[in-house]
Design a protein around this nucleic acid. Sequence first.
DNA 1: TAGTGGTCTAGACCACACG
DNA 2: GTGTGGTCTAGACCACTAC
Lengths: 253, 253
Amino acid sequence: MTRTPAGLSAITFTLDRTSPIPLYHQLAQQLEAAIERGVLTPGNRLGNEVDLSVRLGLSRPTVRQAIQSLVDKGLLVRRRGVGTQVVHRQVKRPLELSSLYDDLEADGQRPTTRVLRNETVPASADVAAALGIAEGSEVTVLERLRFTHDRPVAFLCNYLPADLVPLGNAHLETTGLYRMLRSAGITLHSARQIIGARSAAPEEALRLDEKEGAALLTMQRTAYDDTGRAVEYGTHIYRASRYAFDFQLLVRP
Amino acid sequence: MTRTPAGLSAITFTLDRTSPIPLYHQLAQQLEAAIERGVLTPGNRLGNEVDLSVRLGLSRPTVRQAIQSLVDKGLLVRRRGVGTQVVHRQVKRPLELSSLYDDLEADGQRPTTRVLRNETVPASADVAAALGIAEGSEVTVLERLRFTHDRPVAFLCNYLPADLVPLGNAHLETTGLYRMLRSAGITLHSARQIIGARSAAPEEALRLDEKEGAALLTMQRTAYDDTGRAVEYGTHIYRASRYAFDFQLLVRP
DNA sequence: TAGTGGTCTAGACCACACG
DNA sequence: GTGTGGTCTAGACCACTAC
């Protein structure tokens, strides 16, 4: 006997074939919304792909593609011979290239930034190596203090190829670096991050309003765009008493 | 004119249709190997999918699936109207659910482990909450010290549902916890990690051979399996002087 | 044995980038 | 215009799971 799962049958899908949004994406969005709204609850079976495709008037590969995208997001699990189910525990925040500004803002923290330094200098050996450019090439060096509730959270030092994008202080104080890069048409592709800890040196302690010797969280990051070109190299220092990295991550199948 | 890129034409692909390994996976492996060996160098175009499928005697969707898997890994980039290229900077180590043991071993560090505690206790409120089980349920609590070169690197405290898998001390001393879970047939699916820092308390300093007040790197993690069931909750403390998290991560398109 | 997802085919048309 | 990837179809057979 073929049972249509209660949750799924309660959903009316509306697919617009004239829309520029791909059909599989429309379907995926509506499935995700149904999960979000609780119409499809954890453990609910999704019903087999063939039935679903017939019901929607789509081909099976298209339906599969929609389902697959949600599997990749960690919302669904497929088991051969069993079926497709909603994962019991929802993935709240998928791991992304963490932008401190976005993280804080998403947290309702209303971050602010003070630009301490913004100038063009020749790249030192280590910066050149990190960015994969010639030593002495022009790079923009950026030093910023980030605050929430008028208290410092982090000291951010970044290096970018000088010709990449104009970095006005006004914008830097009201938004995050990654947003500026994105709106300049630069799409980030990958990054390497090293997260460690160390004790605060006297000048660091002063800058961050911590005691000397307090534990600090550190991150070094190099970010790359589509073509593999290094776009940004940074050294960040966070007050461990006010910040921690919160990752949700998926295991590659 | 259609040019076959030099790199690609130099490769002979061998596809075994009788193999249980899917064709798209065989192709993906061989493409990846070619990139690894340097036959396909960064910037090399991969040639269009239609030609490739004809040459290999595969359908285009199958070839696409192979290419897509490498795009997902961050090795290739596709651009509509342009083509498929090898990414300039290679992704060295994709982000995975980091296993300290595996990380150290991959680094040639020959990690060792001393089990300090391994017993079954009723779950406290916070452990029960983290694992999503009833307070007072039986959990296995594990305390381990991990060494490299006979010096401590980390103190690991983990809680697992008691009935999950037998955890013999002998195995725990010679391998990692995640390997034991995997060989018990548990496939990890997702995890939430919180990485922070703090100063060493006296007893922590003693245990890790650090000075009191030294900066320590901390991680809290809850790991989940396929079904969304919490499999493990742990609190780890690392010597910041000897360990840092090294992530390579991709931005979701 | 029945039902599920996993793989694969051989086409088709479209949107976009580039010369 | 030409070539590229992006999307979509309507089937097919197989492997695995559960009963």
